[in-house]
Amino acid sequence: MHPLHVNGLTLQLPGGQFLVRELTFRIEPGEVLVLMGPSGSGKSSILAWLTGTADPRICASGDVWLGDTCITSLPTEKRRLGLMLQQDYLFPHMSVGDNLLFGLRGGTRTERLAKVCDSLSNAGLEGMQGRDPSTLSGGQRARVSLARTLLSDPCALLLDEPFSRLDTAMREQIRRFTWDSAARLPVLLVTHDTFDAPEGATILDIGQSDAVGPVVRAEMKDAR
């Protein structure tokens, strides 16, 4: 696994306002960087820029590296950055198993089916491959969604408030499952809740500035 390195990222709105200015960070495999800040401060825009799906009207500069490879100009599908959003977005026309098979890369049919079974088993969802996603609970859906992302063999994981829609009891369980599953990957987590961050994570706080709008204070501190 390689570190995820963002170098000199600046995001500017069409009106000239800065969302992010000269942001630089590096996340080693197994580390979690937590991006926090008020709504509209540009956290999700940073993730969108990293995945190559940012609004084209936003002016962006800077580059992103996975190990020694610069992936800034690669199309989204070539970046190998796994993404989980607030909603799980399990595809409703596919069964749970088909959703996982869709994420999985390569392998023969038998290998693929075996990997999907293993993945479901790891997520505590044995035998659910034939289920319609709409029949799953919120926590089960979140686990399937994460399993699907991990089966695509990403080089880093980007999480955009993935726990915010879960109830309090389920949150802790899914947090643990997520940090256990992504233990070997560099992870960037966007959240409003410091309790979402795992032990030893680094918090990057995005604050406000009256003059130029929200800018990065690049203040690093240990979580909790």
């Binding site: 989204t76 190998r80 994420g103 695509s152």
Partner: peptide, 23 residues
């Protein structure tokens, strides 16, 4: 949810045309 499906599909490694045809 076309935009979200395309985003998820592409981060899973699929080309835009494949995302359309499969999702």
């Amino acid at each position: 949810n076309v935009d979200a499906s395309l985003k998820i599909g592409r981060t899973l490694g699929y080309s835009p045309a494949r995302c359309w045809s499969r999702l």
